[in-house]
């Protein structure tokens, strides 16, 4: 069975590529979705039959529960609410990325750890994962009308955001150098979560779809970083595809709406926040 594992990863990668290729034209788009689903199914089967996996009860339970929540979420949603639904689904995926990073961190948090490269990749992955999670929740709340959709700006925003970002990076570097400082870890997670909120509140509701595309890109990069840390090429490929396509899609959408990309991307750092 084990010899099937690397081929499952190759097949899944190829199907994801075909999926994006077919998705770029309306006549083949449905086929693109099928290819994506097939790729995902093969990826999951490949992960399940890996010889490292010894217990299945919790995995099956979590997958059934996840499907029980995800299916109604997709079916009961009004078609007018698509952008916010993508945002909330995104928050779930990003939270998963963050939690996997956290579990990996605690596994390596000992004097003989896996090396600074793995730890650095994990830290990078967690910053992107956690900030994407809260940023997606804020994007969802703005589109759903739970939060005022206009840009929220306050005096000194640029300084506050810069300080938060620098603190987060500093803690990430400290943890990379010495992962045994576990007391720093919850602070690191809290800062990453906070930064996600700060990043999106200065952006107006009209720019939200672009922000969601950009967050897609972050989640893709996070998945790639996880692939580097875990030594998994499938995660690297899928993450790089997502990262690149989310980025270029955000650029295209900005151009189509005649918005400045820098504004959307760095709204939190004091670029003119209009809309």
């Amino acid at each position: 069975m084990d010899m099937f594992v690397p081929f499952a990863a190759i097949a899944a990668s190829a199907l994801f590529i075909l999926s994006l290729m077919w998705m770029s034209h309306p006549s083949t788009a449905r086929r693109g979705v099928r290819a994506g689903e097939a790729g995902m199914a093969i990826a999951i089967i490949g992960a399940l039959i890996h010889h490292d996996i010894v217990s299945y009860d919790l995995i099956v339970l979590a997958m059934v529960a996840g499907a029980a929540v995800g299916i109604p979420m997709a079916l009961l949603m009004p078609m007018t609410a698509i952008p916010q639904r993508t945002a909330i689904s995104h928050a779930f995926g990003a939270l998963a990325v963050g939690l996997i990073g956290a579990a990996e961190y605690y596994k390596h948090a000992q004097p003989q750890f896996a090396g600074t490269f793995v730890m650095g990749a994990l830290m990078f992955e967690m910053i992107l994962g956690f900030l994407t999670c809260t940023a997606s929740v804020v994007a969802f709340a703005k589109l759903q009308g739970l939060l005022p959709s206009k840009a929220v700006v306050f005096p000194g925003q640029r300084i506050v955001n810069g300080a938060v970002a620098l603190t987060g990076i500093a803690i990430a570097v400290m943890l990379t150098m010495d992962p045994t400082q576990t007391w720093l870890f919850p602070i690191f997670v809290a800062i990453a979560l906070l930064f996600g909120v700060l990043l999106v509140i200065p952006i107006g509701g009209a720019d939200m779809p672009t922000v969601i595309a950009l967050l897609n890109s972050y989640a893709g990069l996070a998945a790639s970083a996880m692939g580097f840390a875990l030594g998994n090429k499938l995660l690297i490929v899928a993450g790089a595809l997502d990262g690149a396509s989310g980025f270029i899609l955000a650029l295209i959408m900005c151009k189509a709406m005649n918005r400045s990309f820098a504004n959307v991307m760095f709204g939190g750092f004091g670029a003119v926040a209009a809309g």
Partner: peptide, 12 residues
């Protein structure tokens, strides 16, 4: 679709 593909982290 790219959002769904990002869920490949389920492997990890």
């Amino acid at each position: 679709l790219t959002n769904a593909i990002a869920a490949v982290v389920i492997v990890g």
